[in-house]
Amino acid sequence: MTMHANHTSNWAVCFPAAYAEYLGQLRLVPGLKVLVQDGLIWLRGHALDQELGLTLRKIPDSVTYSVHTSGKLTRDDETVPSAEIPEGPWQLLWDWHELKLPRAGFAARLDQPVVLRLVRSSLTTPINALRTTWKIWQQYVISAPQIRIDRFAFAMSERSEVLVRGTPLPPLPGRSYFESNGLFLPVGWRLDPDVGTAVARQVMKLDPETLAIFSDEGTFERIPQSSFVRASRAAVRASHER
C-alpha cells in the first residue's frame, strides 16, 4: 500500500473574496479555473511553476493545496488532506469577466427543544467498547487466544451487529466507544451540554437495567443489561447456530 500515491500536480488556492483584485494579474494564465463560494475565492490549475507559485503566495490569507484525484486537498507542508475541492460550477478565469459575489444566506435553523446532543470533541477519553459486525466478531473469537476472549462480554443486535465490552478491546475494525455509567458514547464525541453521564441517564429516563448506545448522529438505542453475555468460543458458536 502506498498511502499518498494519488497526488497529482494539480493545485488549488483559496483566499477571501475581499482580495478579488489579485485575480486581475492571473487572467492571462492559461487553464486557470475559478469559483466563488461562501465568501471565498477558489482557483485551480494544472502546472504550478515558480513564477505562478510566487504570484499566488502574494495573495493575502491564501492557502495553497495540492489536489488528489479523489478531490481531497492537502496543504503544501502536510501529507494528510485537510479539505475537499468544492464541486463547482467552475468557470475559466479567462471567461470570467465580472466578479459577482453571491449574497451570504442565513443557515436554516430548526427551533427544536434539543436537550442533549453529541458534538465532536478532541478531548481523549478511555476506550472500552467496540461495535463491529457479527461476522468479524465471530471469526475473531473462534480463532483468538483464550486470554483475550476472557476479558469480553458482548451483546448482539438484530442487525447482526455486536457491541463488545472489556479491555483491551479486540483488535478489530469497527467503531470504538467510551462507556461510562451505562452510556456508550462514540469515541471522538461528547455530550453537549457536558452534564456527565449520570445526569444524562436521568435526562434520557433510563432505568438502572438499561444501557444506551449513541450513534454519531446523536440518536440512541436502548440495550437491556441482560443482553450482554460473557464471551467464549462456545457462546459465539452457539449464537451462530441459532
Partner: peptide
C-alpha cells in the same frame, strides 16, 4: 486505517459505519 484492516484480514470487509437505531434525544 480501513486499508490496513483489509490488508490484515483480506477476507473481511470492514464494517461501513454501522447504523444505529433511532430514539431521538
Amino acid at each position: 486505517v480501513n486499508k490496513l484492516w483489509s490488508i490484515l484480514d483480506p477476507t473481511t470487509d470492514a464494517p461501513t459505519n454501522p447504523e444505529s437505531g433511532s430514539s431521538k434525544t
